[in-house]
Lab assay of single mutants.
Amino acid sequence: VTTYKLVINGKTLKGETTTKAVDAETAEKAFKQYANDNGVDAVWTYDDATKTFTVTEMV
């Protein structure tokens, strides 16, 4: 189990959160659900070296 981080650069929601998951795909599903629940529709990137997902909402 690995800890993954999500950085949110949204128009109305900004911040960071983490989740523990067995792999990046599982973490991504959890983070996308979190973003969807909070109304963030954005572009996703992932950095495997830092285990960090970044979501940037387009203006």
Score class of each variant (00 low, 15 high):
36 N>L: 15
56 T>D: 07
11 K>Y: 08
54 T>L: 05
41 D>G: 07
42 A>F: 15
5 K>V: 08
22 V>S: 09
51 K>C: 03
30 A>W: 15
17 T>M: 15
23 D>E: 02
37 D>A: 13
35 A>Y: 15
9 N>K: 10
10 G>S: 13
57 E>Q: 08
17 T>R: 12
8 I>N: 01
13 L>W: 14
25 E>T: 10
55 V>P: 01
56 T>W: 11
42 A>H: 08
12 T>D: 09
41 D>F: 12
48 D>M: 06
27 A>G: 00
23 D>I: 02
57 E>V: 11
4 Y>G: 03
19 T>P: 01
43 V>P: 04
36 N>W: 15
7 V>C: 07
25 E>M: 10
57 E>W: 11
39 G>E: 06
32 K>L: 07
39 G>K: 07
2 T>D: 10
59 V>G: 13
35 A>L: 15
31 F>S: 00
58 M>C: 13
35 A>Q: 05
51 K>F: 07
29 K>V: 07
40 V>R: 06
51 K>M: 05
39 G>P: 04
47 D>Y: 02
23 D>K: 03
25 E>H: 09
4 Y>K: 02
43 V>L: 09
4 Y>F: 10
13 L>Q: 08
48 D>Q: 07
37 D>C: 14
54 T>F: 12
29 K>A: 10
21 A>R: 01
52 T>I: 03
25 E>S: 10
39 G>R: 05
38 N>H: 14
25 E>C: 12
9 N>L: 13
23 D>M: 02
48 D>V: 06
34 Y>H: 04
45 T>M: 07
57 E>K: 06
45 T>C: 07
37 D>T: 12
7 V>P: 00
58 M>V: 12
48 D>Y: 05
36 N>Y: 14
2 T>N: 12
53 F>L: 02
39 G>Q: 07
55 V>S: 03
21 A>Q: 04
6 L>A: 02
38 N>G: 06
40 V>D: 04
53 F>A: 00
46 Y>W: 01
51 K>H: 09
49 A>L: 11
26 T>P: 01
16 E>R: 06
5 K>Q: 04
15 G>F: 15
10 G>F: 15
31 F>W: 02
36 N>E: 13
24 A>W: 14
2 T>Y: 14
49 A>H: 07
41 D>W: 09
8 I>K: 01
52 T>K: 02
22 V>I: 12
50 T>Y: 03
5 K>A: 03
43 V>Y: 10
43 V>A: 06
28 E>F: 15
40 V>P: 05
